[in-house]
Simulated scan of single mutants.
Amino acid sequence: MGIDFKEIFSAFIVMFAVIDILGSVPIIIGMKEKNKKFSPFNASWISFTIMVAFLFLGQAMLGLFGVDISSFAVAGALVLLVLAVEMIFGIQIFKDDGPTNSATIVPIVFPLIAGAASFTTILSLRAEYDVVNIIIALFINIVIVYFVLSNIDLISRKVGKGGIYVMRKFFGIILLAIAVKLIVSNLHSLMS
């Protein structure tokens, strides 16, 4: 019980792979090109707050609505699937119907950072690790998220338009694979 650096490191690596902020760079750059604004600080602290809240209240909250974690994961995976299709085929499905020109909450906070994959992973980690270690691992990940979001223009300049195009297609396929994996693994448990 208590702080365990091995648990923190393991939880950090798992969450880093699931959040995959570097894989989201092409999506975020694409939104900036459409003049969608976002606040790196707000996106970071809102994501952290949501994930910590879900760590403590997730299972009970889903139970309140009669939704199990598998159904929630499939729903989130469908949103990721749509984002992946947009990235791969260069078409717009996600309608810009928000009240403002802000992309901070949707899709940056949800589902890119704090999405179904993150929530499912948080509940899985809770079964194995101490809560304090998960929170520390989440915090470290959010610091990295903030750094990437704050330096998105620098990353864009360094990679260039051609690099962004290739990254967008490549990470679109990765995102599609994650969405399919989430759907298949959770549909299996829903069917049984």
Rank of each mutant, 00 (worst) to 15 (best):
I134Q: 07
A60Q: 10
F65D: 09
A103V: 13
G30N: 14
N101W: 00
K161G: 14
F12M: 08
D153Y: 04
F16H: 15
S39P: 01
S150R: 15
I144H: 04
F94P: 02
E128T: 13
M1T: 12
G172T: 07
S102F: 01
L55Q: 04
G23F: 06
F147Q: 09
D130A: 15
K37I: 09
F9V: 13
I8S: 03
Y165R: 15
N133V: 08
D153M: 08
A43M: 00
L80K: 09
Y146M: 13
S47N: 01
E7K: 05
I113C: 06
V85A: 13
I46G: 01
G160S: 09
K95W: 00
Y129E: 03
G2T: 10
K161L: 04
F119A: 11
I134G: 08
G30W: 00
R168H: 02
A179S: 15
E86A: 12
V166S: 14
R126K: 15
G2L: 08
K169L: 04
A103D: 03
L57V: 11
V67G: 11
F9Q: 04
M31W: 06
A77N: 09
I174F: 13
T121F: 01
A53M: 14
L55R: 09
S10R: 12
M15Q: 13
V159Q: 09
L80A: 07
V67A: 12
S10G: 08
S44R: 00
I19Q: 07
G115L: 04
H188M: 09
T100C: 03
A179T: 07
E33R: 15
D68W: 06
A60W: 00
L62I: 07
S71F: 10
L62G: 11
A84Q: 08
I144M: 11
F5D: 00
P26G: 03
I105P: 04
L62A: 10
V143Q: 09
P99F: 03
F89A: 10
V25N: 03
S189C: 00
L138H: 02
L190M: 15
H188K: 15
S185C: 02
L175S: 05
S24V: 01
N101E: 11
L64H: 12
P107D: 07
A179D: 03
N42W: 04
A43I: 00
P40G: 04
I144K: 08
G163K: 05
I134C: 08
